[in-house]
């Protein structure tokens, strides 16, 4: 059996295990990945359609298309600090490559995303919009986001073994990044001179792309997606290099 197919088996099995493990013992079970984003959505709709109206049409569908990928990103990054620390038994196992855990975590949270995705259809139908062929671009955008998440996760997981500050810094960063990502507002609300941080924020580019293919039914802004892709690859490079450099120390330290 080849190494690749075995690694594939392993990742799929662990991701499936971790996914179902989240809901083991809960009454609502698999309804949770559906309920959570809907509750978040209701808050946003109340705030930005009633309290401080932003004047965006079909607001529920607009928010929902960006909310899911954002949750995928934030949950993955927030849990990355514990990847090696909480899976000490796996990391210390012979023949186990610890970086697998970052891929598994990204995949587990992607499953949560995919379970909640079909609701977009309902929201679009209510608003009278149709799904177009551009949804076929979804896997590409998800792939770029996965690379970004794995890179950042590896970085945080590795350094958090030595300095627990890393996970706290990461949670502050995720919180700030949320406001710099057009999830509940549109980039059109932002004046041109303030756009620079949005260009440099890969999640902004990705969220815009998701929204384009799902909500607008249009081709995404290739330039923005390209920049996000470059940043994702850079993040992956930095994450993987620090992992490679420090992994032996991680073994000694755990």
């Amino acid at each position: 059996m080849s190494a690749t197919s075995h690694q594939f088996d392993l990742i799929i099995n662990l991701a499936r295990r971790n996914f179902f493990l989240q809901f083991r013992g809960s009454l609502l079970g698999l309804l949770w990945p559906l309920l959570l984003p809907i509750i978040q959505l209701m808050v946003f709709v109340f705030l930005f359609q009633r309290v401080v109206p932003l004047g965006i049409e079909n607001y529920p569908a607009f928010v929902y298309t960006a909310l899911l990928p954002w949750n995928w990103f934030s949950v993955s990054v927030l849990s990355a600090g514990n990847l090696f620390l909480a899976h000490r038994d796996l990391v210390r196992r012979p023949n186990f490559t610890p970086s697998t855990l970052a891929v598994v975590s990204a995949l587990t949270n992607l499953l949560t995303y995919l379970v909640a995705l079909p609701i977009v259809l309902v929201l679009l139908a209510i608003s009278g919009r149709a799904i177009t062929w551009t949804v076929l671009l979804l896997p590409l955008i998800m792939f770029i986001q996965a690379i970004l998440i794995v890179g950042i996760s590896l970085f945080i997981a590795t350094w958090n073994v030595f300095y627990r500050d890393v996970q706290h810094i990461a949670s502050v960063a995720v919180m700030l990044l949320f406001y710099l990502t057009p999830v509940f507002y549109s980039l059109n609300n932002v004046r041109r001179e303030y756009r620079v941080p949005f260009t440099l924020n890969p999640m902004a580019g990705l969220v815009q792309a998701y929204r384009a293919v799902l909500y607008d039914g249009a081709v995404p802004d290739w330039d923005g997606l390209f920049v996000a892709g470059i940043i994702a690859i850079a993040a992956f490079g930095i994450g993987y290099l620090s992992y490679r450099r420090e992994i032996q120390e991680v073994y000694d330290f755990l």
Binding site: S2, A3, H6, Q7, L10, N95, F96, T97, R244, I247
Partner: peptide, 9 residues
């Protein structure tokens, strides 16, 4: 020393 990263194979 020469291959830090083993694969599960």
């Amino acid at each position: 020393t020469d291959a830090k990263f083993r694969k599960s194979t």
